[in-house]
């Protein structure tokens, strides 16, 4: 799913108008210039996390969770400083999940640069919808 398709799908599940969404989202602070610059790129997991978190914060005015200690189990949480809070907020709320890379044990990996298939992305959006309802 591309950045544009993801944002369109987000608008669909939340009831947002799609017209001028890039400029409205940037002004509201939940979209960034890079989303508009590269709308046809496949959306990476860290971008999903950012957009979903910032949509909750800026558009829905839902304050951040203060306790993000559950996200500390993600081994790559601090691999991207600007992503860390976005990832933690959607992970702790159960909107996005992580992969366990160990067969017999626990090594949780958020996979910041990963590209999800459409089914996984729709699951995230569905969880967001549930969270908001």
């Amino acid at each position: 799913m591309t950045n544009r398709e993801f944002i369109t799908e987000l608008c669909r599940v939340t009831g947002e108008e799609t017209e001028d969404i890039f400029i409205r989202g940037r002004r509201a602070g939940w979209l960034e210039a890079e989303d508009e610059l590269d709308p046809e790129l496949d959306i990476a997991r860290k971008q999903q996390a950012r957009i979903l978190h910032m949509y909750l914060l800026k558009e829905k005015k839902i304050p951040d969770l203060k306790d993000i200690s559950k996200a500390y189990e993600l081994k790559d949480l601090f691999d991207c400083r600007v992503c860390a809070n976005h990832v933690a907020q959607v992970y702790c709320r159960g909107i996005m999940d992580a992969k366990n890379l160990m067969k017999n044990g626990r090594f949780l990996w958020f996979d910041l640069e990963g590209i999800d298939d459409d089914h996984a992305i729709r699951t995230h959006l569905s969880r967001l919808e549930d969270f908001l309802s």
Partner: peptide
């Protein structure tokens, strides 16, 4: 590395901590 990753936004103060493992 950073003293906090839970930075604020307009209307959100962000969060810091007294102690942590990192």
């Amino acid at each position: 590395n950073d003293i906090t990753f839970q930075v604020g936004a307009d209307g959100e103060h962000g969060t810091a901590a007294w102690e942590s493992d990192y």
